[in-house]
Amino acid sequence: MMKYNVVNKEDKSYIMFNEIESKIHSEADMLDIISACFESGINSVMIDGRIIADEFYDLKTKLFGMFLQKIINYKIKVVFIINEERTMNDRFKELALELNKGTDIRFYNNAEDAQEWLLR
């Protein structure tokens, strides 16, 4: 099970995944994130990009697509904090820009903006 923290702020809560020892690199890790939401009754998640394995950014692996489908199906709001653009290839950047137009998934390069969006 992946480690996480529940953050309470402004009468709202979200789950923070930022434990460097717990990398997201498989479908099982994605299911851990969803399980954490159900266990805590919280459907908002912040994920530190440093815990995402490189395979996740490679759209050919289909890992990110599977994750998107699961969070959409379970109506989970997710924000990713990705500080280093070098980890994202051009196709992933295009997808991130497109997803940022929606209401369920966002990408930010700092925790402050990510939290502000997540708590809306």
Rank of each mutant, 00 (worst) to 15 (best):
A96M: 02
R106S: 09
E98N: 14
A114S: 09
V79I: 10
N110K: 04
A111V: 11
F92Y: 04
I82C: 04
E112I: 12
K101A: 15
F107I: 00
F92H: 06
L99E: 03
A114C: 04
N100L: 07
M88A: 09
M88P: 09
M88F: 08
N110T: 07
D104Q: 10
E112Y: 11
D113R: 06
N109M: 12
K93C: 07
K101I: 11
D90W: 07
T87N: 10
T103R: 06
R86M: 14
G102D: 02
D104C: 11
K93H: 04
D90K: 09
E94A: 14
A114T: 02
Y108M: 11
F92P: 09
E116Q: 15
N100S: 07
A114E: 01
E116Y: 15
L99V: 06
E85F: 15
E112Q: 07
Y108W: 03
F80A: 01
E98V: 14
F80W: 00
L95Y: 01
E112W: 04
L99A: 08
L99T: 05
E94I: 10
L95C: 04
E98K: 14
D90R: 09
E116R: 13
N109C: 13
G102M: 02
D113A: 11
V79K: 01
A114P: 06
L95T: 02
M88D: 04
Y108G: 05
N109K: 12
E85K: 09
I81Y: 00
D104I: 10
I81W: 00
F107G: 02
F107T: 01
N109A: 14
T87E: 03
N109H: 14
R106Y: 06
F92E: 00
G102V: 06
L99F: 04
